[in-house]
């Protein structure tokens, strides 16, 4: 530890590495426990003390998709494939929509400020200041009146609206941080205002867009209350299905529940992993001078 600042990255001492590993395990343990339980039989899942060495089984994953009802009889499809698709489709579409609309709005707020620009931005932010659940009754009534309950259009529109303020504020901060000289240079090079946006400004904030995308996906992927009240059997998302799986006549099936959750985690992990470099750049955007 003579000169820690000169130590090459990735060459920390064993003490620190083990310390970091210990902290990571504490944080990661619940996830690990869920994944382990997903591969346990019903007996193993309920065993005490907790079994860490056991014969893994895939039966829980099979019952995610096909299982018999309590009364017995042939295994039936659970519709989980559809719910999984719903979660991805509704989440992906609404986040993308919010990102597209939000980026356009953010560029406008950043480059073509209106009279009272700050007021508009503040008003947009206020929609995130109260817990969304407060608006549940009017939204529920609205959905009834316009026949949006249980439709893709309804829930996608709602999630888009919820994601917009976050997208606008986040993306605006990325546009604000760009070097204006670069735009002046492009203007002198003969770029029109649209080309300036499309060819110069937008590519510079791709990392930021990716970061915004991931954050919004995680938020939306998790959303439960509105999904519970406003989706129907055809548009149900995974969080709702997970809750419906809890309980039942023979007690909680922990293995089945864990298998559901394990599958539920995978897309978010994949998205985050695929965009991790962008994510890091996006989060540190503007803090490190190029």
């Amino acid at each position: 530890m003579a000169n820690p600042s000169n130590r090459p990255i990735g060459k920390s001492g064993w003490g620190r590495t083990l310390g970091a590993a210990a902290v990571s395990i504490v944080y990661f343990f619940p996830v690990l426990y869920i994944i382990l339980t997903a591969f346990k039989t019903r007996q193993d899942a309920l065993a005490w003390p907790v079994k860490f060495i056991f014969t893994p089984t895939l039966e829980n994953f099979v019952s995610v998709f096909y299982r018999t009802t309590v009364e017995g009889g042939a295994a039936e499809a659970t519709g989980f494939g559809l719910y999984f698709f719903n979660s991805m489709f509704i989440g992906g579409t609404s986040v993308l929509l919010a990102l597209i609309i939000g980026t356009a709005a953010a560029y406008g707020f950043s480059r073509f400020p209106l009279r009272g620009n700050e007021t508009y931005l503040f008003m947009i932010l206020t929609t995130r200041m109260m817990p969304p659940i407060i608006a549940i009754i009017p939204i529920f009534v609205l959905f009834r009146i316009f026949g949006l309950s249980g439709t893709y259009v309804g829930i996608i529109a709602l999630y888009t609206a919820f994601n917009l303020p976050f997208s606008i504020w986040m993306v605006k901060s990325f546009f604000d941080d760009l070097d204006r000289d670069i735009e002046d240079a492009a203007r002198m090079d003969g770029s029109s205002e649209f080309r300036l946006f499309r060819k110069i400004c937008l590519p510079q904030v791709y990392a930021g867009l990716a970061a915004t995308f991931v954050f919004a996906v995680i938020l939306t992927w998790n959303e439960f209350v509105f999904a519970l009240l406003l989706t129907g059997t055809q548009t149900r998302t995974v969080p709702v299905q997970i809750v419906r799986t809890i309980g039942g006549a023979i007690g909680v099936d922990w293995g089945l529940l864990s298998a559901l959750e394990t599958l539920f985690i995978i897309p978010v992990v994949l998205v985050t992993f695929a965009l991790q470099n962008q994510l890091l750049r996006g989060v540190t955007f503007g803090t490190i001078r190029r």
């Binding site: 070097d179 000289d181 670069i182 002046d184 240079a185 002198m188 003969g190």
Partner: peptide
């Protein structure tokens, strides 16, 4: 702008990153 035939080198260079 297009027919001005003027170019500028900025202090910060302002290259397209």
């Amino acid at each position: 702008v297009r027919s001005r035939n003027t170019a500028m080198v900025f202090q910060t260079f302002a290259l397209y990153p």
